[in-house]
Design a protein around this nucleic acid. Structure first.
Lengths: 299, 299
DNA sequence: CACACTTACGATATTCGTAAGGATT
DNA sequence: AATCCTTACGAATATCGTAAGTGTG
């Protein structure tokens, strides 16, 4: 009853014929022989159940019903073209949106250069970046608010997939004039007895550091929130600290030195979290590809 | 480049699959075998140049691009259906508009019953009726402001076609106590010497009456605009008048009698005027058919 | 008779359904 | 093993182009 089977070819043929008022010329524009074009128009008229053209052998003109249909046909063609082009723009990465959640350590130090390259390549794709702690990163992916995430924990929800992304070595940071600064590699035990400046106990870095140092205990524990504060403390000679390599940019200062920690190396793992039940959009795929290609190497 | 050839079948298949998330069930709804349905979806994906579904063997879901396209596909289908239905409504005379221009004599006396029948049959078709003198009737058709017209003149424009519609006998109207009222048929010559009440010289009725009576001259000529005024004058005994039969309803009064005039009958012809270069809309065709069927017979 | 659309018809392409294949639960 | 989608393939259908037909100026 209400399921006419029309094709864009029919509609385009109709519009061309309405404008050119000549089967011969309209057929040429549609790259069809004139009889085939004639049949196409006939099939359209049959599909919509109305005679759309009055053909005398000498002249072709729209019927009143045809005039009525012309508006709709043009609108439909335009809408269809716009819809398909919009889709194409997304596929071709000329448009779109990608959302990424990442640990602040990654978001501040490593990510900006990646995003700059991404924006240079796909200037019209919107970037939605969240710097969040690992748990919130995972939650954002789970809730669909992020296409994928880089976090320091594995996801345990069934609809989420976790894969290793990179490893992050722990480093000792101390003043250049500190005794430990003389060594190139430092074993964990060497930290014993030194004053430590540390982040708040809730921070994942702190938890990982504590776990790595165990059973060593820290001396003069602090509860700082910001790594830049830690850096200030260390620079002032209040102690040493241990941080993952991705955060070392906070400590780039002439008075400070950084040394890899542990043999074998002490490290934490960063994971890539994504939904397993939903494909990534083209834009997200593109960002993911770039992220993987510019993955930080082991340092 | 920008001419994707989509069909409504593809769009409908796409929407069904997006909703049912099952090739098997969606194929059934589309009355297709499952492999044929699968091919249909594949052809759509190829046409728009994007993968729209993610198929694992166990589950089917839209890709992000597919979600994007779903809105457009649904909108397109709905618009197409509405457009075709609107066209169908016009063809089926459930909707539309017809414009008719007719002489006041026809518009007042004969037309109302015709329109009433038309409206009874096609209650939702808008009627645009103009009562106008013959020249304006023709002009309205020429300008496209009327689909067709009933007038007392032939059209001479090349894009207009004129065909006879009906003939309109002239009648004498006089008081019942007038000497002429005694006769059943009255020759033209019998009018000589009687006082005449007449319309303005510009009226077509007046011109036709004068031509018909020639070389007889009228006595006590008046310049009235309205036939109802003429009727009043005749009733008052100021004279007799001659009018075409279609206007006789103005003179239906107990004191008045009407008599056919002339042997052979004195008559004017009413013509149907329409454009020859443009077809009539379905609504106009329907009204025309009814008008022809209820054509006034010779009286 | 020249032009423009329609009809006729054989050739080509597309689309269909059945049957077999492959992957996942 | 059962389910679901894809691939394979012969058959039915649709569409195409050439050529002949028809009506009009």
């Amino acid at each position: 009853m209400s399921e006419p089977n029309l094709s864009t070819r029919q509609l385009r043929a109709f519009v061309e014929l309405a404008e050119l008022r000549s089967f011969t010329r309209a057929a040429a524009r549609c790259h069809l022989s004139q009889p085939a074009f004639s049949a196409l128009i006939r099939s359209l008229e049959q599909a919509v159940g109305a005679r759309l053209f009055d053909r005398t052998t000498r002249t072709v003109g729209l019927t009143p019903e045809g005039s009525l249909f012309l508006d709709g046909a043009q609108r439909l063609l335009q809408d269809m073209q716009a819809t398909v082009e919009d889709l194409g723009a997304h596929v071709a990465l000329r448009r779109g949106r990608v959302s990424l959640a990442a640990l602040p350590a990654l978001a501040a130090g490593w990510l900006p250069a990646v995003l700059q390259e991404f924006r240079g390549r796909y200037p019209d794709i919107e970037l939605d970046i969240a710097d969040a702690l690992s748990e919130e990163c995972v939650e954002r992916v789970r809730a669909g608010r992020a296409d994928f995430a880089l976090a320091a924990v594995r996801a345990n929800a069934p609809e989420l997939a976790t894969e290793p992304f990179c490893t992050d070595r722990f480093h000792l940071v101390c003043r250049r004039d500190h005794p430990l600064a003389a060594r190139r590699r430092i074993a964990i035990g060497a930290l014993a007895g030194h004053h430590m400046v540390s982040l708040a106990r809730s921070s994942s870095v702190r938890q990982l550091v504590e776990a790595a140092l165990r059973p060593l205990q820290m001396r003069s524990v602090m509860e700082l929130e910001q790594l830049s504060t830690v850096a200030g403390m260390v620079r002032a000679g209040l102690g040493i600290t241990v941080v993952p390599s991705l955060t070392l940019f906070h400590f780039e200062h002439a008075d400070l030195v950084t040394r890899p920690l542990g043999t074998p190396a002490l490290r934490r793992e960063i994971f890539l979290i994504r939904r397993s039940d939903r494909a990534l959009s083209s834009a997200a795929q593109a960002l993911l590809a770039l992220v993987m290609r510019r993955k930080p190497g082991p340092r």
